[in-house]
Computed example of a mutant assay.
Amino acid sequence: MQLMAIDPEEQLATRAAWLYFVAGLTQAQIGKKLGLNRTRVNRLLAQARDHGLVQINITGRLASCVELEERLRQHYGLDDAVVVPTPPDQDLIPQVIATAAAAALSSRLKDGMSVGVGWGRTLRLSIQSVPRRQLSHLSVVSLLGGLTRGSAMNPHETASHLADLVGAQCYYVAAPALTDTESTRDVLAAQPMLREIFEKGAKVDLAFLSVGELTASCTMTRVGLVSRAEVDDLIRAGAVGDICAHWIDREGRIVDHPLNKRVVALSPERLPDIPCVMIASGGRTKVEALRGVLKGGMCDVIITDEQTAKSILAMDKT
């Protein structure tokens, strides 16, 4: 199944047209929202009309995505939202979201920034699509410990790959993501080196994260961090997924479970203090976790797919 190609120009024209003809914004307001000058906005609106995107209604195939972006922004108080069409093959959702997330991340990277990075398949695919360029005085901080065995989704690999692409200095958490006991975690957390890294992580300008689902075949079980018996126990405790390796419930609260006391990672409770938290994730199994993150105020920019966005919004109607 081939990926559905997303034309950035078509997407921008559709977004501008929806804001102008449906949301009723002025060209100046649209320019401010999209970071464009009025001349560029005017040309996009003309392009939308010329290409038949605007008749009585907006007919572009991304129009429904643009509407969902606006609804997500308004309902959850987000700075931005990017919604891409859901591909027919659910297995392709991470790649489709990753392409959009790479563009969103690249547009925000500036000289002198510090960027915190999580882990997961979607983030790994996203960073593979980030164009290589040299930035000055940029640092990348891994926000959680690593895996004890090799994996393409290892947090260390994700952070180091991004740092290499933009010529940044990289900081790692020199500890496992999950310790064997709470006391081991406490000993590691008390080490000056780790305290320094987590302080850097809490002070980044931008955090680039994903969420994990809670199923018998989730990433945590595949890499050996959590057993299937522990998955069942987490579900009974009210967990719906994880962010920064911490298990949360559908309202975004960290669940009271022994696993959360063994995590070596930045606490999600510190995410609201970071100026921009970007979360890229989607798919049926991620809906409850994403809704929890949004309800918990841990996200400023979401990149997801159309069906996931609809499902998230539908949860708050019930």
Rank of each mutant, 00 (worst) to 15 (best):
G252I: 10
W247E: 15
D249M: 02
M193L: 14
V264F: 03
L138N: 08
L188V: 01
W247C: 11
T148R: 14
L144I: 12
P258N: 03
S151P: 02
A239E: 13
G241E: 03
S160Q: 09
V130W: 06
T179R: 00
V255K: 09
S160H: 07
R250V: 15
S210I: 02
C244E: 07
M193C: 11
S129M: 08
S183G: 00
R195P: 05
L266M: 10
I248Y: 05
G238C: 03
V204E: 08
S139T: 15
P131Y: 05
V187Y: 01
A229R: 09
R250W: 14
Q191R: 14
G150Y: 15
G167P: 07
A175E: 06
M220V: 15
G252E: 14
S151I: 02
R228S: 13
L162P: 07
K261G: 07
E182R: 00
G145I: 15
M220T: 15
A159V: 06
G241C: 01
G238Q: 04
Q128K: 12
S142A: 12
L123T: 06
G241S: 02
V231L: 07
R185N: 00
A216I: 10
S129R: 15
V240K: 08
D242T: 13
R262S: 01
A168M: 12
I254W: 05
P192N: 10
R250H: 10
N260Q: 07
T158S: 11
L209F: 04
I248T: 09
D233M: 07
V166L: 11
S126Y: 01
A245C: 15
L209Y: 04
E157W: 02
M220C: 11
L147H: 06
K261M: 01
L123V: 11
S217W: 08
T158W: 02
N260M: 05
S160C: 05
L259N: 03
H161I: 07
S227P: 04
C244H: 01
D186K: 00
R262A: 00
